Simulated assay, not measured.
Amino acid sequence: MTIQTTTARPGTSASDVAALAGRILLAAIFVLSGLSKVAAPAGTIGYIASAGLPLPQVGLAIAVIVELGGGLALVAGFRTRFIAAVLALFSLATALAFHNHLADQNQFIHFFKNVAMAGGLLQVVAFGAGRFALDRR
């Protein structure tokens, strides 16, 4: 079965547009989460501490850098494969650290949301950013 692509303009395939849209959609949750941590750091520090992790202030700084910096880099298509790999590992680590009470339906959903996000990010690792990315320059 062959899927035909249409072109938005000469040299632009639907897969290039889909790659950009996919990066934006994947990055949105990281950018928003990073911004919320910047806006209310005390809540995040308390949450990290309640999970029993050491150095919650350092954890907050790492989370902001990874989420906000990584999310924006993913949108821009800057070092896309590396950034997507970092975000995938971050998603799995946070699933294990913060959403590991799988008997709680809410935690179960959040755990597998993070796993699904990691899967989407691994697709970016495998196939790259597409045409509309700083990586292409």
Rank of each mutant, 00 (worst) to 15 (best):
T94Y: 09
A88H: 07
K113Q: 14
Q105F: 07
M117Y: 11
A118N: 07
I83Y: 03
A73I: 01
R79W: 15
K37E: 01
G77D: 08
F127Y: 15
G70L: 02
F127T: 14
R79Y: 15
N100M: 06
A88F: 07
R131H: 09
L72T: 10
A97W: 00
G59F: 08
L68V: 03
F30L: 03
I48W: 13
R136L: 00
A84H: 13
G34I: 05
A73H: 12
N106H: 14
G119Y: 01
T80L: 00
A97V: 02
A42W: 00
A129M: 05
Q107P: 01
I48R: 11
A39E: 05
G46E: 13
F111M: 03
F111L: 05
A118K: 04
G70P: 04
A84V: 12
A133G: 10
A61K: 03
I83L: 08
A76N: 08
N114C: 04
I48F: 15
A76M: 12
A85N: 10
L96P: 00
S36E: 11
V66M: 07
A85K: 05
A61L: 15
F111N: 14
G120Q: 02
T44M: 13
G70M: 04
N100I: 01
L121D: 08
L134D: 00
G43H: 08
G52I: 10
Y47W: 15
G71E: 10
A88M: 07
A73V: 10
A95F: 09
S36H: 09
P41H: 10
F30E: 12
A126C: 07
I109K: 02
A88N: 04
G120H: 01
I29Q: 13
Y47P: 04
A76E: 02
I65E: 09
R137G: 02
G52P: 05
G69R: 06
L134R: 06
F111D: 05
G71P: 14
R137P: 00
E67A: 06
F112G: 07
R136W: 00
L72Y: 07
E67H: 02
I65Q: 10
L89K: 00
A88Y: 06
F112H: 15
V64L: 09
L55D: 14
G59A: 12
A97Y: 00
F90M: 05
L26H: 05
N100R: 06
V86Y: 05
A63T: 15
F90H: 13
G120I: 02
P56W: 11
L25D: 04
L32K: 04
L26Q: 15
R131Y: 02
F98H: 10
F111P: 06
F127P: 02
G70Y: 03
H99P: 06
G69V: 02
A129E: 08
D135Q: 06
L35Y: 12
G46A: 08
F112P: 11
L68T: 09
Q123Y: 12
G128N: 12
V31Q: 05
L92I: 15
V66H: 11
L92K: 01
A129I: 07
R81V: 08
F112A: 11
E67Q: 14
K37V: 01
A61G: 15
G70A: 04
V86R: 03
F82Q: 14
L92T: 08
F90C: 03
A103R: 01
V125H: 09
R81G: 04
L25F: 11
L68A: 08
I45G: 07
A63C: 09
A116N: 12
G119I: 04
F82E: 13
A103H: 09
F108D: 11
A28Y: 15
F82Y: 10
F108H: 12
